[in-house]
Simulated scan of single mutants.
Amino acid sequence: MTHTPLLAEHGGPDDGPPADFDFSTNASPLGPPPALLRAVRAADRRSYPDPNYRALRRRLGDGELVLPTAGGAEGIRRLTLAALLTGRREVWVPQPGFGDYALAAQALGLAVKPYARPADIRPAAPALVWICEPCNPTGESVATWPGVDALLIVDRAYEPLRLQGEAPPLPAGAWQLISPNKALGLTGIRAGYCVAPAADAVWAHALSLAPSWVLSAEGAALLMHWLDEDTQAWLDDARAQLRVLTAAQRALLAGLGWQQRDSGTNFWLARPPQADMLPRLRERGIRLRDATSFGLPGWVRLSAQPPAAQQALQLAVLEIEGEDS
């Protein structure tokens, strides 16, 4: 029996030449914080980290309930397997949403159940429910989450990039998956962590399924300084700058006739008037994220970028429109 490989689609580097201006990744373009970067560069690469990451886990919260992960993607795969091993048979995923939730479930033969609204979640079997708050790719949030009898995991990768509104209360008994590298502008360092509500069977499996030394020395250094006061102050300032960049870029796209959806983050969904805009921009060194894999053909996800990138995008769009006139 043969199996077709299941491959995720992402923003960021593709197999073409390096982009001059990359709007496709939803990471912050402002990082990293100088003090945290110095700590990462000073990480001791000559020896193994503590394989149990005891000091790091205490730094991040209750050391008995914190589990380091090699970024959010590894955490998604590991927690989905832990869900299977504890009897879950359905995996509910936001639609549109990050493709790795469904891919991790499909790879294990679990039933994938997409939902557009929290009210749509109605498990018919023991289930894992993924919540992305704020949601990727929309940047949207919900006010409240209804009670569901399921294993709930809230992916909070984009919480530090929330520019408007407040985070809704966490559902009772929910896990948290935290990936700071996007907000820090250090996506090349794969480091994150889970926070469990209790040391139950899911926690025990998630702990035992971790590879040895799941974090590199650099990843451990990043997380060790994630909660530092200067890192959090830097993030406050970065969010203020991102609000300005986001407002300017949305106004620019509106002036070019692009349709745009609301978002509370530094990234959002937009629809250019020309159907072939995406590859033509790529030819000009500008990359946007095709939203077809999110179930939104004709739409793109793009993130707020500095003024030089915004100007390059505007000039390229006007050039393309001039060619078509």
Rank of each mutant, 00 (worst) to 15 (best):
A220Q: 14
A220N: 03
A220H: 04
A221Q: 05
A221L: 07
A221V: 04
A221W: 05
A221D: 07
L222Q: 09
L222C: 10
L222G: 08
L222M: 15
L222E: 03
L222R: 05
L223K: 04
L223Q: 01
L223R: 01
L223V: 05
L223I: 03
L223F: 02
L223S: 01
L223A: 06
L223C: 02
M224P: 00
M224R: 11
M224W: 10
M224H: 13
M224K: 01
M224V: 00
M224N: 12
H225F: 10
H225L: 04
W226C: 07
W226F: 07
L227Q: 15
L227P: 07
L227G: 00
L227W: 04
L227M: 07
L227D: 09
L227H: 14
D228E: 13
D228S: 14
D228P: 07
D228N: 12
D228L: 04
E229T: 14
E229K: 12
E229V: 13
D230V: 08
D230S: 14
D230T: 12
D230K: 02
Q232P: 01
Q232K: 10
Q232L: 15
Q232D: 07
Q232W: 00
Q232I: 02
A233I: 01
A233G: 11
A233F: 01
W234K: 08
W234N: 09
L235I: 09
L235K: 02
L235E: 06
D236L: 13
D236W: 01
D236S: 13
D236K: 10
D236I: 08
D237M: 03
D237N: 08
D237W: 03
D237R: 14
A238H: 08
A238S: 12
A238I: 02
R239H: 07
R239M: 05
R239K: 11
A240V: 03
A240K: 11
Q241E: 15
Q241Y: 00
Q241A: 15
Q241F: 02
Q241L: 13
Q241D: 14
L242E: 08
L242T: 04
R243G: 05
R243V: 09
R243T: 06
R243I: 06
V244Y: 00
L245T: 00
L245R: 08
L245D: 03
L245H: 10
L245E: 12
L245C: 01
T246D: 12
T246F: 00
T246P: 01
T246C: 08
A247S: 14
A247M: 09
A247L: 13
A247N: 05
A247C: 07
A248C: 07
A248I: 02
Q249K: 10
Q249F: 07
R250T: 08
R250G: 13
R250E: 13
R250I: 02
R250H: 09
R250A: 10
R250D: 04
